[in-house]
Design a binder for these strands. Structure first.
Lengths: 196, 196, 196, 196
DNA sequence: AATGAATGAGACTTCATTCAT
DNA sequence: AATGAATGAAGTCTCATTCAT
């Protein structure tokens, strides 16, 4: 079934373009990536990109959509394999970090490029991001926390710490994304003040 | 408003240029800010900028230097007013957050623009950043922590959480930078797992 | 006159650009010719030049290549029509001078612009020039000369005299390039001291 | 008398500016030399140059005047030390070549920069050059030549050969300017055809 | 679906020059 | 005589985009 006649040309080279765009966007950001660069990386001429995407912004949005979908799927899958709210949170952190620190360029774009970086696409980008973060609202909402705890702050703190890793984490540095995620969770869960 | 009467030949309009640059850089990033924009904001022609700064990179470095100096001074001053390592850390978080979330555009540039964003200035920017982060190494180093704790991870987690606030915090949202900083510190210090 | 109907999509307007570049470069030199000027002369916008040539230097190199090719071909063809080393030398002088003093702007660029004028292209220009001058080494090498004669000096003297004509020769002044070339050759060959 | 009180400040630093201009102009040409470069080389700011010279063109003309004066003086002095028209011509060639191939930047400017390179100064530059070349008209005019000889061509050929040396001569290459000048003269005087 | 050429705006930077001080 | 700051034009080159083919 899968190895049917027509195989390669399928529905064009749009995926190839997306891959190239994701690769560059997550490394150089929105302003630092030109349509020319993307075209070259995809083995095309700049004009040819416009057969697949009407504007640079559209291309970014398409990458973003896939990025959000992927990281969301990864986190969802990870949390469903666990029981217990803290276990689920830890699994989510592991999935999030492994996704953005390994080779998923699409997901990395979501973390690297901010909706405000592309003024013409802000309105479409923001909801996508929001869609992903809603997931974390649920995860944090499910935690058994002292009444005084501000769950929003906790969530934003954790996501901030996770996302900021892109700026300092380098593979091969000893600590794996998984270990790092677990450390983050533990720090939040148990605190560091020695039991007095 | 632009083009003041040309009195005050003294010490020039370089500070004005720096202010304009800081304002734009912290909002739009390095690639998103053009020399034209900065010149216009300073009430000059683009070429006139080059009386004060030889290149766009030099201008960024000058802003960075002032930014690092300011946020460093703020944190140092705050910590010296406190006793106790956790108190010092909390004071540092408050100072850091108040500086980057209020109107100090210079400090915000340091948090927003990464050395790698400006390839021609990376070599000058990175040490400045490092100079500031060294301060946090000391602060975290002084904490009385369980032996198992990875102080580096703790530091990077906290700084990540603090710096990421620039992406979601908006003044007038109820929580002040000071409150936020205290919450972050408390979350790390005491943990959230209900005493069992 | 600019902006032809846009028919003739074939093989593009690159030759037109080259022609315009050659025309200006041989008259105003490298620094004296701007990309803007060339574009205007070619009926394009400055940015459009870069569809055909990646940099100003590349454009110069392309002109140079054609210039060297043309003058070399002219000299080679002329010498092959003659017998005898002095006849060949004279024919070469005639060809060289007719080429650079008539309307071959490409060849004139080779004589006018020095590799060192365009630092970024020196490495590519110098071998081209050398390629042409090698031809003259052969021509002078074949002359039956008194043993004491420094052939290198003779060659450089002759080429210098020929090339310098660009600075004073103006068509319509009575002497044709052909006549001039013959005079130069005769002066060197027979000397001017009256037979005593 | 000479070692009187006021010594150094004399009539300002104009000579210093001229020296700097000559140095740069003879090396980089007119378009390749900026007013800024000259000012920096003279230890001044660009604006300060305009205390001494109203425009870049004026500066070039001033350098040119001194250049012509120097090379003219050198040639005149040399010819007056000799007897015989061919001896005078040889002495002139030696003086010309030693002046432009050694360190007299002023004279080198005259040979390197053409009146047409500075459109705004062409009208003032051309007569200066002409003034120098008139000298050669006399020298060649005095030669005892066969009636058929075109003295103008002979003169232009010799001057072309001499001036072109700037493009290939490098000190330390074995042949001195003096030797070279003598070779040029001999080639013209005696011819190279072996006595048959 | 893709190309090659072109566009017009705008990028950073340097130019010769001016002028109040 | 000199400075420091500014100007306005122009320098080379890149940008996202368009469009006939």
């Amino acid at each position: 079934m899968a190895a049917a006649p027509r195989l390669a040309h399928a529905d064009s080279r749009a995926p190839l373009v997306l891959d190239a765009a994701a690769r560059l966007l997550c490394r150089r950001g929105y302003e630092g990536t030109s349509v020319r660069d993307i075209a070259r990386a995809a083995g095309m001429l700049p004009g040819s990109l416009y057969c697949h995407f009407a504007t640079k912004d559209d291309l970014l949005v398409a990458v973003y959509e896939r990025g959000v979908e992927r990281i969301r799927d990864a986190v969802l899958a990870a949390t469903q394999r666990c029981d217990g709210p803290w276990q689920k949170l830890e699994a989510a952190c592991v999935a999030h970090l492994e996704t953005i620190l390994r080779d998923d360029d699409y997901a990395r774009v979501v973390v690297r490029v901010f909706p405000s970086d592309a003024p013409g696409a802000t309105a479409r980008l923001a909801p996508l991001r929001e869609h992903y973060e809603a997931l974390w609202r649920d995860l944090v909402g499910a935690l058994p926390l002292p009444a005084r705890t501000d769950r929003r702050t906790l969530r934003l703190m954790l996501l901030g710490a996770l996302n900021w890793t892109q700026h300092w984490y380098h593979a091969g540095g000893g600590t794996s994304p998984r270990t790092l995620a677990r450390q983050f969770t533990a720090l939040l869960r148990q605190g560091q003040e020695p039991a007095s």
